[in-house]
Design a protein around this nucleic acid. Sequence first.
DNA 1: TTGTATGCGTTATCAG
DNA 2: CTGATAACGCATACAA
Lengths: 332, 332
Amino acid sequence: MNCMAKEKKLPTMVDVARQAGVALGTVSRVVNGQQVGEEFKSKVEEAIDQLGYRYNSSGRALRTGSSKIIALIIPNTINPYFALLVHHINMELDKRDYRMLLCFTEYDKDRENEYIQLARQNRVDGIIALTYNPRLTIPGDIPFVTIDRFFSTSVPCIAADNFGGGYIAAHKLKELGCRKVAFLRTSSVITNEPAKRKDGFVSACVETELPFEIMDLDDSQPFEKMKQFLISHTDHGRLEFDGLFVGTDALAWQVIQVLRSMRIQVPEDVQVIGFDGIRMFGNQEMIVSTIVQPVREIAESSVNTVLSHHFANLPSLICLPVTYAYGGTTRE
Amino acid sequence: MNCMAKEKKLPTMVDVARQAGVALGTVSRVVNGQQVGEEFKSKVEEAIDQLGYRYNSSGRALRTGSSKIIALIIPNTINPYFALLVHHINMELDKRDYRMLLCFTEYDKDRENEYIQLARQNRVDGIIALTYNPRLTIPGDIPFVTIDRFFSTSVPCIAADNFGGGYIAAHKLKELGCRKVAFLRTSSVITNEPAKRKDGFVSACVETELPFEIMDLDDSQPFEKMKQFLISHTDHGRLEFDGLFVGTDALAWQVIQVLRSMRIQVPEDVQVIGFDGIRMFGNQEMIVSTIVQPVREIAESSVNTVLSHHFANLPSLICLPVTYAYGGTTRE
DNA sequence: TTGTATGCGTTATCAG
DNA sequence: CTGATAACGCATACAA
């Protein structure tokens, strides 16, 4: 079963020093892996695990000016894409012995700014942010990295190759025999990287002479607008598109529900490709055929960038490769 | 657009004091909302937002001995149930001006214990843990709360009413006209609260004279075992059960995939009820008909409990009410 | 009510 | 190479 520990007050370096019969500085040097005589070193080490000593993060942070904490500002962890991002970023930070200050904005613009102040209050060593506020105040004194959104050449942005994803999607639909396709998305007030999904899609459609249409869904009533669009493009129960590329897997799923209610078969009548690469329960099959975001790589790259010491000349935009994955809503 | 901040070194209380022409202690008292003369107070407040001052968390933590951080030890954020829990716990902590130290164990027993040490190193004010290690070392000097798992009467455990959930599920299946039912689950090495789902189910089956069977799936090959079980209980393409209660929504989803591959219709031939209350993309419809865990309430209760000052005589087990929710895999 | 001084645990500087 | 000591930013006991 379980057993209780007993110590009442946590041991400090002073306790260790006394126990080992050495000076405070010596203990510090051992803890930090600096040059210490073998004799002393072993005495200190013995005292350390005899007392169960662990350094106090606050003390160290105060003294060194480095908290070993990175703030992650993100809407929530309910959306599976965000949840995955949080997971991988925390794992990457953990590897490097950093902690995460997790800030959920719930898409609230004021909270996005407020959390930057909170991060500063906690003296974080950097901030990774996935935000939507068009007037975000980016601190000049803290390493700042954004995901999926370009601010300026001095703010590194990490993102999937959204353009490439759209491009691949269109090519795939063509390859799977589509004759007329459409792109559906909910448009954002800000222009972020995901907006490029459209550009890549259009580019490939033009290139392959695949007729296409673009539908920007209102942010307020996306579901109704999308339904209306699909119905207005139906003639005698036949949809005029045989291929759909949808901005996100979440929206693609809703599109499919609507199609189903219209008695239009997927993928027989119309093939659907989403974007993100969301898996059922996070670890089972893809929810829809999709363009998969390299979430682990995005996480790794974000962490590497924000921890980069030469924070000057860094690339201002890093696009990581996406892949197509079958998820039952396309043929084959 | 965005604008850069400029300050090079963050201002400290000393800077504020100098700027306001008052003593250090006065600034501290203003910051902490203690009684200060109006005259002084406004001078300090002006200086504060002139300098953009924010207190240094490390300094305060070091001085007060309270980090205002709670550790959350949990497998990951990939599983939607965990993701939801992380979300609500962080929101609840945020409300109370606490931060979260998020520790992902990936079900690794050693990491579960290691993270408790990390939490201690960070001088957290408490730990909320959802763990599986049968030999977890529970610290006696840090408020410790567990979710979904009972350790001893001195360790508060927060959980959904798992027994009640199983009970409701069986009753629901009976009510929906089932004649013979089964409960499928992957059994855990440790006995935790979710194990009670079976007991409640059995209890209700006996009570309502509903014939039932229990299938414990091996933790290593749950999918194969489950498939085998279903096939072995099929006679001429007809499953001998017309109702299934499954330990989790994730497993229920897999069960449904297998049934589909066996050409058994859900819910026409067999109705399926899962457990957890997972929604598609976290915010859309339920993935299957299910017993919904009150995740927000579990989060709230966990936070309240771990922050409770009178950590002595606390309830050792808090079970929160569950509800049945339709999700397309039952009739009606 | 406000000012002053001390110490929380750590690292770093300097003297031995 | 090791020991003593100062300083990081803050809260608080004590003095004014």
